[in-house]
Design a protein around this nucleic acid. Structure first.
Length: 377
DNA sequence: TCTGGGGTCCTAGGACCC
DNA sequence: TCTGGGGTCCTAGGACCC
């Protein structure tokens, strides 16, 4: 068992956005810093320094709330381009350890370190070297979780923060998971936590008591997989699947929240035009054509609707995108009602392979058989 | 204290087809 | 005469993640 098990690293950068901002402005170091916008703006916290967290500030919290909890905090606008370029440096460091790197987001990655012992030594030594190289090459700290699956490694990195490492030894997974709070499991948010509590499940170990049919009924197939994992089984694709290159994007979207709600048609249409152009530009950059276009509309009272339209011919043209979005808007807007947010979303890229140049899709690997044209019956 | 923006995945119902 | 069953596509909404 242990001999054949995989070694998965989950590498998670510590307070990534804040740390990157500190590189650009060292005077921020050691202070309460909130990244995401100004203290009086509509918006939420994208990241908070550990100093700010002491005052109860955390990500996803409204900026104005953060300002009340921690009035001396320094508020900084986000710089996505800075984070992207730092993320590329992080990626390069990881690739120097193993080619099997999968960036799971801008600041975290899974590494398949199986079979790298001769090169890097046992897991904890390899992790120590990674810590050091990361700091040397990027000036950033990371936390490292080590286990036999993505799930175990991810849970470990969460427990290792900041700037730590944690290794769940092969064979001990069930024991390791059992006492954990269900909320420690990635994918269990507020809603699922409440559902689990209501049926008496507080820890991962508690899940083992329930029959599969019951879990399937109440939690769906994800809960089923988690329970399997809690019992030490391989639980399928996400938990146990191959760690490879990050896959191509499946959707592209842009949205905008107004600082002041509006029902002004000219203003609304110019926003939709701008969002359509942003989506179109990114489609062309990625050489995607989208089949499905979706409008998102959020009213003043936060009620939100989405309306989609699938085209016969996929597109990447600003004008075509805007025409569809504009039509959807006028067919669905409660006329005169004030709008808080507008969004334009493009998806259905796979089908493009049917119309377009299959050669373009070479090198994407052969796992995505779904996008290959089916043989004509 | 009102609640961003960019994503992924899942569910559920209806249409449609065999 | 009271009504199949599976599969796929599409839409809308929602949970969740960083």
């Amino acid at each position: 068992m242990a001999a054949s098990s995989r070694t998965v690293f989950h590498v998670d950068m510590d307070a990534f956005f804040v740390s990157v901002e500190e590189l650009f402005d060292p005077s921020l170091k050691g202070k309460a810093v909130v990244v995401g916008g100004q203290r009086d703006e509509r918006g939420v916290v994208a990241a908070a320094s550990y100093e700010a967290r002491k005052f109860g500030v955390h990500s996803a919290m409204p900026l104005r709330t953060a300002a009340k909890l921690c009035s001396h905090a320094i508020f900084v606008n986000g710089h996505p381009d800075r984070y992207r370029s730092c993320s590329e440096k992080v990626h390069a460091v990881l690739e120097s350890f193993t080619p099997q790197v999968e960036m799971a987001s801008i600041d975290e990655a899974y590494l398949d370190m199986t079979g790298t012992e001769r090169l890097h030594g046992p897991p904890l030594l390899a992790a120590h070297k990674l810590h050091q190289k990361m700091k040397a090459d990027t000036q950033l700290n990371c936390s490292i979780g080590i286990g036999t699956s993505r799930l175990i490694a991810k849970v470990c990195s969460g427990k290792a923060k900041p700037h730590g490492m944690l290794y769940a030894v092969p064979g001990q997974e069930t024991k390791f998971l059992a006492p954990l709070d269900v909320r420690d499991i990635p994918g269990v948010g507020k809603v699922t936590e409440q559902k689990l509590h209501s049926i008496g499940v507080l820890t991962v170990g508690d899940l083992a008591r329930f029959a599969d049919s019951f879990l399937d009924e109440h939690l769906g197939k994800w809960g089923l997989a988690l329970a399997g994992k809690a019992r030490g089984e391989d639980a399928g694709a996400w938990f146990d699947g191959v760690i490879g290159e990050s896959e191509a994007a499946k959707s592209i979207s842009h949205e905008h929240t107004y600082n002041h709600d509006t029902a002004d048609v000219e203003q609304i249409e110019s926003t939709l035009m701008r969002l359509s152009e942003m989506v179109g530009r990114r489609l062309r950059e990625s050489q995607f054509h989208a089949r499905t276009l979706q409008l998102k509309l959020r009213y003043k009272d936060f009620t939100t609707i989405t309306r989609a339209r699938t085209l016969e011919t996929p597109t990447q043209l600003d004008n075509e995108i805007y025409r569809q979005i504009q039509t959807l808007f006028h067919a669905n807007w409660r006329k005169g009602a004030e709008i808080r947010l507008l969004g334009v979303h493009a998806s259905g890229f796979n089908e493009q392979a049917l119309q377009g140049d299959l050669l373009e899709d070479q090198g994407r690997g052969n796992r995505n058989e779904g996008w290959l044209p089916r043989a004509h019956a």
